[in-house]
């Protein structure tokens, strides 16, 4: 009976407790809902920021169907997300595993590897990028030594996006820290037991690390997708807000910003925002559905 009791009681709803714990969040919800509802309303208006919004029905959404620049920005954003999210998470997890144990001077490496994320949208990052990938930057100098004439990485529309993907992978610090924290939650005894059984490193990774870390991997994945679809700062800083060269780094969010603040078309920008919300929500929902098959919780 004592064995069964907790299960039964666990099923019992704890409405009042849940709501009490959520009290601050409910308070915050008011602060969030007001602007949310406002922007949803604006999505159906013609709003130039300076004069009152005028109801426009679905006009903005109809315009989006034929907006070639918007389609270009969607393409840029999808390519960027599909390539950079898995790549940067893999790098972050790999580095976190290496840094998790067994290296002298861990704290230093960890801090150093986190540096690019600290600097964020700093001019120093832009300088590094030009220095590495500029027309006569280091990468092309290196290529020249083996007889290859490299392209103009940052100014050629065919290559600019790939350097931004690299830039993103390079700032793997944030997911790395989360992975590190997650690895720290895995009880060491599992590894001790596995070692006694003579399990290989790979086997330990597959049978212990991956399943026990899966909630954290899941978090990083969902989070990275949401953030990646909303990428703004990198392109804003590197392309000076233009999304150039020739729109090749015009992320959806950057185009939205241009529409809203440079072209005074906040109604259109709001419709774009809600389309993006639906896209992200769709991907997140798929993620949560798929999580049932690979994310392991201890309950």
């Amino acid at each position: 009976m004592t064995e069964v009791l907790p299960r039964v009681r666990r099923r019992k709803r704890q409405d009042w407790a849940g709501y009490v714990f959520l009290l601050p969040w409910f308070g915050g919800l008011i602060f969030m809902i007001v602007p949310f509802v406002a922007s949803l309303y604006l999505a159906f208006t013609d709003y130039d920021l300076l004069t009152p919004p005028r109801w426009a029905g679905l006009a903005n959404f109809r315009e989006m169907l034929g907006d070639a620049t918007l389609h270009q920005s969607l393409k840029v954003t999808f390519v960027y997300t599909l390539v950079s999210v898995p790549l940067s998470l893999a790098v972050a997890l790999g580095v976190a595993m290496v840094l998790d144990r067994g290296v002298r001077g861990l704290a230093i490496y960890r801090s150093v590897y986190y540096l690019p994320s600290l600097l964020g949208g700093s001019v120093a990052i832009v300088m590094l990028w030009r220095y590495l990938f500029g027309y006569d930057g280091i990468v092309n100098d290196l290529l020249a030594t083996i007889g290859i004439t490299g392209p103009a990485w940052t100014t050629d529309p065919d290559y600019a996006l790939s350097t931004l993907i690299l830039l993103h992978v390079w700032t793997f610090g944030a997911p790395m820290v989360i992975f590190l924290a997650g690895l720290r939650q895995i009880p060491a005894m599992y590894y001790e037991a596995a070692q006694m059984d003579g399990a290989s490193k790979w086997r330990q990774f597959r049978s212990i690390t991956l399943p026990l870390l899966s909630p954290i991997i899941f978090f990083n994945l969902v989070q990275a997708l949401i953030a990646s679809f909303q990428t703004f700062t990198q392109s804003y800083v590197i392309s000076n807000g233009s999304g150039g060269p020739a729109g090749s780094t015009l992320f959806y969010n950057l185009y939205l910003y241009q529409k809203g603040f440079a072209e005074f078309d906040m109604g259109y920008a709001s419709s774009m925002a809600w389309l993006l919300l639906m896209i992200i929500a769709g991907f997140t929902a798929i993620n949560f559905l798929a999580a049932r098959y690979w994310v392991f919780y201890d309950n």
């Binding site: 100014t155 050629d156 529309p157 233009s242 999304g243 150039g244 060269p245 020739a246 729109g247 241009q258 440079a262 072209e263």
Partner: peptide, 17 residues
């Protein structure tokens, strides 16, 4: 006219290459 800034930039890049 603010839209022209980016239009001219894009076309200049296409012409440049």
């Amino acid at each position: 006219a603010s839209k022209l800034t980016n239009i001219l930039k894009t076309i200049s890049t296409e012409a440049e290459f």
